[in-house]
Simulated scan of single mutants.
Amino acid sequence: MRLSLPLVCFFQSWTAAADNIDKIITDSADHTTLETALTQAGLLATLGGAGPFTVIAPTDAAFTASLADLGAATTADLLAREDLAEILEYHVHPTAKVDPLEAGTIDTMQMMQATVTVEGAVTKVTGATEATISSKVDADNGVLHVSTDKILLPKPIATIATENGSFGVLLEALTKAGLAETFGLKNEGKLYTVFAPTDDAFNAYLKDKDISKEDLLNDANLGDILKYHVVAGRKLANEIQAEEVDTLHTGNKLTLAKNTDGAVTVNGVAVSGQEVLAGNGVIHVLASVLDPT
């Protein structure tokens, strides 16, 4: 029998031991969508493990309230997203029972951090969206903090790039080419790897080509230039091998390589610094603009 979590909490206050997180979710009448999503993503069984885990547990109502944030018409659309596992992993702190939630940042299984704010009795966890914690349920292997208003979404590539401050020209070009939404929340959950030239890289490119930024933004080939920097799927630095990969610029490939010290190059151009994680992919920073053939 499924129980609402407040009732589950009542029963738990009278029992010597709670259940594991997976069973609490399965037995909850308010978390059918979360159960379905976790099962589909292969994560429900993980939350039955030893843990300890801390789970931000959105109710069915929270999933419904978040559909517009994702440009989804129905819950089925949300469950069909390629980035579903990324979204769910962003709700899980995989190594500790964090109770109470305290102001600051919290690591997630998705590898990005979420921000916790506490103002009086109101606790919120924030990524690209803000989930208000309404209650909590202790489990044998951790704790669930229940959100009834929103699911917790990790920030997408577009937001991460904007906040970074080094990709102004790239973002302006993506907007001009009509590609900005490709890297936002409402992109149907597609995952991307972006080899992203910095503003300095674009400035050097403009100087080398003897053109202005306005010339570049009005170039009929702007979209193809940008697509040449993007690979479908999320490819982290430790997953990159010596290989040729297709780009969004159909028929044009990038040549990836990795030096003996682990440094990655793209068409011979070194990737600068650490990768920048996002909810719908990853950014690898480039000091040069790549020209498609």
Score class of each variant (00 low, 15 high):
Asn267Asp: 15
Asn141Met: 07
Leu254Thr: 08
Tyr90Asp: 11
Arg81Gln: 05
Ile25Met: 11
Ser212Lys: 08
Glu102Cys: 00
Val276Cys: 01
Ser13Ile: 00
Tyr228Arg: 03
Phe11Glu: 14
Phe183Thr: 11
Leu153Lys: 06
Leu34Ser: 05
Val289His: 02
Glu163Gly: 10
Gly104Asn: 12
Lys190Ile: 08
Tyr205Lys: 07
Gly165Thr: 12
Thr293Ala: 10
Lys227Ile: 03
Thr148Asp: 14
Thr175Gly: 05
Ile151Glu: 12
Leu47Tyr: 04
Tyr205Pro: 01
Thr132Glu: 14
Leu67Gln: 14
Gly184Arg: 10
Ser272Met: 10
Ile106Leu: 06
Gly71Thr: 06
Val264Cys: 06
Lys190Glu: 12
Ala72Phe: 09
Ala204Cys: 10
Leu88Ile: 03
Ile151Ser: 09
Leu67Ile: 13
Asp219Ala: 08
Val8Ser: 12
Glu86Trp: 07
Tyr205His: 08
Lys190Asn: 13
Asp140Cys: 01
Gly273Ile: 06
Leu44Lys: 13
Glu244His: 04
Pro197Leu: 01
Ile87His: 02
Gln274Val: 11
Phe10Pro: 00
Gly48Ser: 05
Lys176Gly: 14
Leu78Arg: 06
Leu206Glu: 03
Ser288Phe: 04
Val125His: 09
Val269Met: 08
Asp224Phe: 09
Glu181Leu: 04
Gly281Asp: 04
Ala29Trp: 06
Ser272Pro: 01
His284Gln: 14
Pro154Thr: 11
Thr132Met: 07
Leu185Lys: 12
Leu5Pro: 03
Thr250Gln: 10
Lys258His: 04
Phe53Pro: 02
Glu275Tyr: 01
Thr260Tyr: 08
